[in-house]
Nucleic acid binder design. Structure first.
Length: 973
RNA sequence: GCCGUUGUGGUGAAACCGGUAGACACGCGGGACUUAAAAUCCCGUUCCUUCGGGAGUGUGGGUUCGAGUCCCACCAACGGCACCA
């Protein structure tokens, strides 16, 4: 012992520097330091043992009847460990929820891990380590780190998306979506990353490159599971009104949904039977249209140009376009290029035939992929100028000079609400903004087109051909499902009657009038063995059925003669006369007429289920072990090679069947995790309804700006879907959403391993302690803004804690009568911190605490009562030290069981204020006065002031302004 | 190009509804304690200055008794979207 002491004395001169490096600062040298490592461990153990942060179920809560559900985005447990950015967000919500607890709320503040996804899988490919193993290790590490910074999570409720007990319900929700027709399989052009061999959602493609590997992306046709999020587009848009998201987050959501209203025109291509539709969101100037443009990727384009002299040139252009699109990573907006197709549009507006061009600037998958163009659109204008296509104006500015310029086509004049229309005749003189609705009506009345709405939002590509994700719990049955190819025709049903008939197989004969103009729609090429899909347009439910026999009839009379078929066609009474029979076919005015002109097809069918869902008892469908984690070159999931897993029996018929081998995207598990926290161990349902009713919606959700479009949209969609079927109580999951700013590296750049500027929170906790780290992250700058990391900043926060300790040891006296000024500042501080926590002004809350501490240390002493109040409002920021000091001041229970201190407005009031005297807006003097001083009194005092007298010498007073409590301004010259 | 955010000392930043610009913290300079260093404490720290004062919140205008804050035009940085007809 003696030896050790002398050693310390001997080495004190540089010990501080040395032990910081060696990390051996595990003894207390003086009162000005504290052993954060031991102290923090002590309180973390205490909280664990006392279950300080355990959230009781509603029926066990006996406190006040008010709840608060605070949510933070659960982390992806990467191998790099916790990022200091996580700590910023988690500490903020930790502070908010601790305060809510102290305000008497029943608080839910949970955490979990979103652990499916590419990094673990890519690591597995590289090292052959099963993702389950790395994930387990990473979760253990993250858990340790999160606990080491003292975030008050209820660890009993922790969830992991990779846990079969969790993804059982992710699979269940998917099956619900499937059963309700919200999941469907479609062959679509998907974004295919050549490097990763994986299909990407639109949102994972950044500037034409893969978001993850940065490699090139190409379009490939692939059969994918899709979720019909577009069916919820309007509600996802409109319901934003009822939420309290930051305005910029709402804007992002709105723009991603991208609702646009306008009209569709239906127009015949001259000399063909092709009818093309175009979408126009600015129909006011439709009379200006002088040409049309079709997307090079439009499916009708080859038919359009077939046999024309231009055909070869156009096909070459299309080829060149597609190649360039891949090579240049979609950066094709530099120069717009096009080619005349040789076709003309038979313009129904009577303004002449419009030449049809194919051009790079029209995208295939928005609207109809075909556009009518005019001088009143910037891109159209530029294109026409480049290729010398005639233009015509249909709207002019009010200013005559400008109008002349527009007439001369000097620039593109567009989207001016005050623009005056020239055509059509009926609208001459009306303004662009005012005429819009009437023009749309006019276009509809004239039969030129009909109102239509478009969204940028696309259906959600929900399948991945990857290993590390939730298996899609469907079985492809070879017995009760037919999987032959052939074009799948679609039969839609608006009416519930027809739909029910199909579902119950009441009718086994379907008939359709033929129409050579639209062969696809009217089934004149239907063959036995075809799979036809019927879609209920109301519910979006899809059923498949196989065509058994096909019958063709010239007219209704021929069909009426097949008396053997009639009972299967007519659901009610069988008509006795042809006349009666015809009547039953009068869906629309010309339907019978069309049948008698072109004929009619009828076919016998049987209902099919191509994909059969597993039953609840069969869930979870666990991921099997595999040998290789690489996706195959053909793009199939590695699961496809696990033959004994793929081979199974059909849950419906029991015959041999094959499993779906696609897995879900990593968005799946995070789309409902906030629901699972509420009832995390329930094995009967994903969460009990009564508990959901108590806790939902989430009162406050904080996360990164990078998740404010997709994750937010997807999870809102799932929640709405579940709400529609009565599984969750609220249609919107999150009442309030805020976002934290990123923490950047020291140089102001994003932290990344390659730049070597990553800060490891473990190092900071080791050196300074968790409380210092927390305090610094809250103090470093405005919460919603990106801030570079500054190691020096930690010092100031560390000093603050040392001073706080010093205050407790040297200044706190029980029963001391506090100085009036200290008491006043205390209550001002309580008020400031209370308000700042609610508005996320953490940086100014910390600064006000610093101000108080600085002042209090100057006082002779501070009462125990005052110190306790100060410590209480500070405790959410620095929970460990707060508990320690609370204990030191004689308490045996946790500080977090205290009530949040109320501030006394009377005590916080100033007795004397500094009133600034300005002469003509310049500060010339100051007066110490009562806050209640009147204008007259203040002016009298001001005029007595010698500086003021000096400045007013030889001047005439023009005006006297008095702002109570602030300023006196004497205007003189 | 469009949308959003932000421009204030050497640095991170404060500044409520238009009312003392630069709180708080870092850094730096000086001092105290010490043989010395670290730690700690105290003083100073926007710039210019003839020590009276003057200028100053990205730039240029405007409104006002008074503008970092409001209005107009512009510039720059960051983030998001990007041929959406």
């Amino acid at each position: 012992m003696l030896e050790k002491n002398s050693l310390i004395l001997f080495f004190t001169s540089y010990a501080n520097n040395v032990w910081k490096r060696l990390g051996t600062k595990d003894f207390v040298l003086s009162t000005s330091m504290y052993n954060h490592r031991e102290l923090e461990k002590k309180w973390q153990a205490y909280w664990g043992k006392q279950q300080t942060y355990k959230t009781l179920d509603p029926d066990q809560w006996h406190g006040e009847n008010k709840k608060f559900y605070g949510l933070v985005e659960f982390p992806y447990p990467s191998g790099h460990g916790l990022h200091v950015g996580h700590i910023r967000s988690y500490t903020a919500m930790d502070i908010i929820t601790r305060k809510k607890r102290m305000d008497g709320y029943h608080v839910l503040f949970p955490i979990g891990f979103d652990a499916f996804g590419l990094p673990a899988e890519n690591y597995a490919i590289k090292t052959k380590t099963p993702p389950a193993v790395t994930t387990r290790e990473n979760i253990a590490n993250f858990t340790r780190q999160l606990q080491s910074i003292g975030i008050g999570f209820d660890w009993d409720r922790a969830v992991e998306t990779t846990d079969p007990a969790y993804y059982k319900w992710t699979q269940w929700i998917f099956l619900e979506l499937f059963k309700k027709g919200m999941a469907y399989k479609a062959s679509i052009p998907i974004n295919w990353c050549i490097n990763c061999k994986i299909g990407l959602a639109n949102e994972e493609v950044v500037n034409g490159r893969c978001e993850r590997c940065g490699g090139p992306v190409e379009k490939r046709m692939k059969s994918q599971w899709m979720l019909k999020i577009t069916a919820y587009a309007d509600r996802l848009l409109n319901d934003l009104e009822s939420t309290d998201y930051l305005e910029k987050i709402k804007t992002q959501q709105r723009e991603w949904i991208g609702k646009s209203e306008g009209v569709n025109y239906k127009q015949r291509v001259k000399g063909t039977d092709i009818v093309l539709e175009s979408y126009d969101s600015v129909p006011q100037t439709f009379m200006a249209q002088t040409f049309a443009v079709i997307s090079p990727e439009h499916p009708f384009l080859p038919r359009l140009i077939a046999g024309l002299p231009e055909e070869q040139a156009v096909l070459e252009f299309v080829e060149k376009f597609k190649r360039r699109k891949i090579e240049q990573g979609f950066e094709i907006d530099k120069e717009i290029e096009g080619i005349f197709t040789g076709r003309f549009l038979d313009n129904p507006f009577g303004t002449g035939d419009l030449p049809i061009w194919a051009a790079s600037f029209v995208v295939a998958d928005y609207g109809t992929g075909f556009v009518n163009c005019s001088a009143h659109d910037e891109r159209d204008f530029a294109f026409a100028k480049k290729y010398g296509i005639p233009l015509k104006v249909a709207m002019l500015p009010k200013d005559p000079e400008e109008a002349q310029k527009v007439k001369d086509l000097e620039y593109c004049y567009h989207h001016d609400p005050e623009g005056v229309l020239l055509y059509p005749e009926e609208f001459k003189g009306r303004t662009w903004a005012d005429a819009r609705d009437d023009i749309i009506h006019y276009i509809k009345e004239k039969g030129f087109g009909y109102p239509s709405t478009n969204y940028k939002l696309r259906d959600w590509v929900f399948s991945r051909q990857r290993y590390w994700g939730e298996p899609i719990p469907l079985v492809k049955c070879t017995h009760c499902a037919v999987t032959k190819g052939g074009e799948k025709l679609t039969l839609s049903f608006y009416d519930q009657g027809g739909w029910e008939a199909i579902k119950q197989e009441r009718k086994t004969i379907e008939t359709r009038a033929l129409n050579p103009e639209e062969p696809e729609r009217y089934f004149d090429n239907v063959k036995a063995g075809d799979i036809i899909h019927a879609i209920n347009k109301e519910t979006q439910e899809v059923l498949a059925f196989e065509v058994e026999t096909v019958f063709h009839f010239q007219n209704l009379s021929e069909l009426f003669d097949r008396k053997d078929l009639l009972p299967q066609i007519c659901s009610k009474d069988i008509p006795q006369t042809l006349n009666e029979f015809e009547k039953s076919y009068e869906y629309s005015s010309d339907y019978v007429e069309r049948i008698n002109r072109h004929g009619l097809v009828a076919w016998k069918w049987k209902l099919q289920s191509v994909y059969v869902p597993l039953s609840l008892e069969q869930l979870p469908l666990e991921l099997p072990k595999v040998e290789h984690y690489e996706p195959t070159d053909s793009g199939e999931s590695p699961l496809a090679s696990v033959t004994d897993w793929v081979k199974t029996t059909c849950p419906d018929c029991g015959h041999e069947a094959i499993r779906e081998t696609d897995t879900m995207p990593n968005w799946a598990g995070s789309s409902w995790y906030f629901l699972r926290y509420i009832d995390p161990r329930n094995d009967q349902v994903f969460a009990g309804f009564e508990k959901l009713k108590y806790w939902m919606p989430v009162d406050w959700y904080n996360g990164g700006m990078e998740h404010t479009t997709l994750h937010l949209l997807y999870s809102r969609f799932w929640n709405k879907f579940l709400a529609d079927y009565g599984y969750v109580p609220t249609s919107e999951p999150y009442q309030k959403r805020t976002s934290h700013g990123m923490i950047l590296g020291e140089g102001g750049e994003k932290m990344s391993k390659s730049k070597g500027n990553v800060v490891n929170p473990d190092d900071i906790v080791e050196q300074y302690g968790a409380d210092t780290l927390r305090l610094y992250e809250m103090f470093m700058g405005p919460f919603d803004q990106a801030i570079p990391w500054d190691p020096k900043g930690l010092e100031g926060c560390s000093r603050f804690l040392t001073k706080l300790l010093k205050m407790q040891e040297e200044k706190v006296r029980s029963g001391y009568q506090d100085d009036r000024s200290v008491l006043r500042l205390l209550h001002k501080t309580i008020r400031k911190i209370t308000q700042d926590i609610d508005s996320m002004g953490f940086n100014t809350a910390v600064s006000s605490a610093m101000i108080f501490l600085n002042e209090a240390l100057k006082a002779e002493a501070v009462s125990l009562l005052a110190f306790e109040k100060f410590l209480t409002v500070l405790s959410p920021f620095i929970p460990h030290l707060a508990e320690e000091l609370w204990e030191k001041t004689g308490h045996s229970t946790s500080i977090f069981q205290e009530t949040w201190p109320a501030f006394d407005a009377e005590l916080a009031k100033d007795e004397e204020i500094e009133l600034v005297v300005q002469i003509s807006g310049k500060v010339r003097g100051r007066l110490l006065v009562s806050p209640a001083i009147t204008k007259e009194e203040a002016l009298t005092l001001a005029y007595q002031n010698k500086d003021v007298k000096k400045w007013l010498e030889g001047k005439t007073v023009r005006q006297e302004i008095f702002v109570p409590g602030k300023i006196v301004n004497i205007v003189a010259n």
